[in-house]
Amino acid sequence: MEMETALKSGRGGRPSRSDSEVRVHAVLEVAKGKFLSQGYRETSLDSIARDAGVAKKTLYGHFGSKAGLFDAIVRTLTDAWVEELRKIVAKENGADAVLEAAALHLLDVGTRRDMIELYRLLLVESRRFPTLVDTYRGRCGKLTGMEPLTEYLSRAVGRRELELDDVDLAVEQFVHLVLGCVRSRMLLGRAPRPNVTSRRRIARQAVAIFLSGCAAGAESRAAQACRSA
């Protein structure tokens, strides 16, 4: 089997680093496909090992358990998201430009088929396997993967560009404003994925609404409600 052959490459039968990375990536792709199409409980390590072309003990060696394998999948997706978001907020092009780019990134990633299926799986399995949600949301319920945006908004508040009483809450509200309704319609099968033009329109409007409530000096009812909450 191709994956098992990689175990024997390199000196002394040990896999090279590149071989190991290729093997792990392939296993994660196989496992992700099975989890998203079949569900968490219904997917077995035996079936993943068979389709990935590795021994079951290899999965235990790399990931420790089925939960560890699922956690690795979510972390891989989150790490890629965070890295791109960090690049976006590092540009410091002004709140409107930064937030619009962040919103578009959120829509581009969050409306992908695999991400919709992952979110559906988490909703379904959260009661049976509550620890599966820990990688997506911390134990206190805080969204993970949004740290760069949290840090950016905190800096903007410090510069008095934005007025926010609770940055963590503002991040969560921003995410729901951008993605919430779109993702809900897709989860219910009532809408296809918005095209690029639609995603840009959604991002622009969401940012305009968000900034109308927290831009420095804003006197709208939304801003007043934010301060009095």
Rank of each mutant, 00 (worst) to 15 (best):
V82M: 07
F35D: 00
A102G: 06
T131N: 11
T135R: 05
R120Q: 05
E29G: 04
R139C: 01
E125A: 13
K32E: 12
M115E: 09
E42S: 14
Q38Y: 06
K32A: 08
I88H: 00
K57E: 15
E117Y: 06
V124G: 07
D71L: 05
G141K: 06
A49E: 01
K34T: 00
G68N: 07
E125V: 11
T78C: 04
L85M: 14
I88F: 00
L132E: 00
V89Y: 03
L59I: 15
C140P: 03
I73F: 05
A49K: 09
G39Y: 10
K57H: 11
V30L: 00
R86K: 12
V89L: 04
V82C: 02
E84C: 09
Y40T: 10
V109I: 14
E100A: 02
S44R: 05
A55Q: 08
K87Q: 15
A26S: 13
V133L: 08
V124R: 13
V54L: 03
S44C: 02
V74R: 08
R41Y: 10
A101V: 11
R113Q: 14
M115S: 08
H105K: 06
E100G: 06
T135F: 04
T111P: 04
K91T: 04
A49V: 06
K91P: 00
S37Y: 10
V30Q: 00
V30D: 00
R139F: 02
C140V: 09
S47H: 03
I73E: 01
K91C: 03
D108M: 12
K57P: 04
G64L: 13
R50P: 02
G64H: 07
L45F: 02
A49W: 06
L123G: 15
R50H: 09
F63V: 09
D114N: 12
A31R: 10
V30A: 03
E29W: 01
R128H: 13
K32S: 11
F70A: 09
E125D: 10
H105P: 02
T43I: 12
I48Y: 06
K56I: 15
E42W: 09
L28W: 01
K91G: 00
A80W: 12
A26N: 15
S65H: 03
R86W: 08
K87F: 11
S47K: 01
F129N: 01
T131Y: 09
G94R: 08
L28I: 05
V133M: 11
L122M: 11
